Simulated assay, not measured.
Amino acid sequence: MPIKKTPIKNRIGGVFVPVRDIERAREWYNQILGLEGGEISFGHIYSAPMDGTAGLILDTMPKWRNEDGNVSTYQAPSIQFLTNDIYASYQFLKENNVELLTGIEDDFYFVFKDPDGNLLMICKEIS
């Protein structure tokens, strides 16, 4: 089957993470990822200054909340942050009282929660 021409780029522009408190989330992600700068826009979006092809966007998602005012969180790790030292990264999160859900698995990755309950993953970068 021939590939059809599409106006959509095969590049991810950003990954949205649902959060409840944009200020608290910005502070936590900045601390954990060693980030500085970045602005909160429209009162509910923080675009984290990331390296790489996709940006990390924290959003309180006011349009997507249910009738109780809640927004769903990631219940499976869907974002992978990279590290050159999986053991130092694990220890760093432990020392910063981050909720770790797994130990280091297969000498390659581990899963943790952000303050909003989103499941995230750290993986060893493969060169």
Rank of each mutant, 00 (worst) to 15 (best):
L82M: 09
D21P: 08
G55P: 08
E99A: 14
D85E: 06
W64V: 00
D106Q: 14
I126F: 11
G69I: 07
T53M: 07
C123A: 06
E23F: 10
I104T: 11
F81M: 08
T53H: 09
G37V: 07
Q31D: 06
K113Y: 05
I12M: 09
P115W: 04
M1N: 07
S72N: 14
E99R: 15
S72I: 09
I45C: 07
V19N: 03
L82E: 12
I3P: 04
N30M: 12
Y87I: 06
K5N: 01
E67G: 04
W28V: 02
I32Q: 04
R65F: 04
P2D: 07
E125W: 11
G34W: 15
Q91L: 15
T60P: 01
V111I: 15
T83K: 12
A54K: 06
L58C: 00
Q31H: 14
K63W: 09
P2Q: 14
N84G: 15
F108W: 12
Y29Q: 05
E23W: 03
I57N: 05
D114H: 09
G34I: 09
T53Q: 09
T73R: 11
G34Y: 15
D59E: 05
T53K: 08
F110A: 06
G103Q: 10
K124C: 00
A25K: 12
N96G: 13
A88W: 03
F81K: 14
V98K: 04
Q80R: 14
P62K: 06
L82Q: 07
L120P: 06
K113C: 05
F16G: 00
E105D: 08
A88N: 08
V111A: 00
K4E: 03
D116N: 12
M50S: 01
N96W: 05
G52I: 02
G103Y: 02
D21C: 05
M121T: 06
D114K: 03
L56H: 10
N96S: 10
D116L: 06
I122E: 01
K113M: 06
T60R: 00
F42K: 10
E95D: 15
E105L: 15
F108D: 10
A76Y: 14
V17E: 07
G37F: 08
K124S: 03
E95Y: 07
I86M: 08
G52F: 11
E125H: 10
L93P: 12
N118C: 01
